[in-house]
Amino acid sequence: MAERTLRQWLLTDTPTSRRHAKLSALYQGWLAFRSNTMAMVGLCILLALVLIAMAAPLLAPHDPFVQNLGNRLAPLGSEGHLLGTDSLGRDILSRLIYGARITLYIVALVALIAPVVGLLVGTVSGYVGGWVDIVLMRITDIFLAFPRLVLALAFVAALGAGIENAVIAISLTAWPPYARIARAETLTIRSSDYISAIKLQGAGGLRIITKHIWPLCISSLIVRVTLDMAGIILAAAGLGFLGLGAQPPSPEWGAMISEGRRFILDHWWVATMPGLAIFIVSLAFNLLGDGLRDVLDPKAGE
């Protein structure tokens, strides 16, 4: 009974307070999202990934770094090693489980850095206008026109290999689309009546940008970030595969593929399993992103 009234309270047409209206809108968005099966599948996979990463020490049957040269390249389903072992006798399943942490770490960092940089550049550019706008947008265009992977390669070459540098390199190449989106949103919001009203009340530029423009840019940025996640994971794995991201013995999935590559014809599972992991996670992000786009930004979908 109580639940039903809560539901009714959330679905009301006449919200009684601002918070009520907000919660109601959120709930209706969730209902729309929930009806999208594929998006829910994506969400579940990602939640599972987060749980696996958090509980890695509990779930992993072996230490991901312990070598056992007597039992190297054991096939799938061998005793105690469900997904076999790699060339140094390390348990592949355990390495995959620990690798989830690295993947999430990279994705989270890039997803924090790139949209924030883009949001700053885009809103300032759109709100201030004039020369600032021209200069900032020209810089954005220049970065947008670069080949991303090749540029990330060159950045990593200069900064040195490693996870943090891979994150910086990917972020440096990932921010321009966010700046474009944020600028476009800012331009439409800037000229709306309620912004003029706030201005008349004496609000300054900083307050307008942070309190009134940013909150409205967030939803389109979130959609874009989710859709970009797959690309970020693939880029990070690519750098790892080239030996420029996470360094051995780190169980990063791209680096694991690179290790397994040498045995691909005789011991196929060593490279296949981490590749499957990458594929499943980026697929989940794509499914989730499509679903979120339909809920948050219905115009963009076909």
């Binding site: 794995a237 690519g238 595969f241 791209g254 593929i257 590559r261 490279a271 590749g275 794509n286």
Partner: peptide, 12 residues
């Protein structure tokens, strides 16, 4: 699948 697959892995 094309958007989600690491190209180097599919190549392997």
């Amino acid at each position: 699948v094309g958007y989600s697959m690491p190209i180097f892995w599919l190549g392997l």
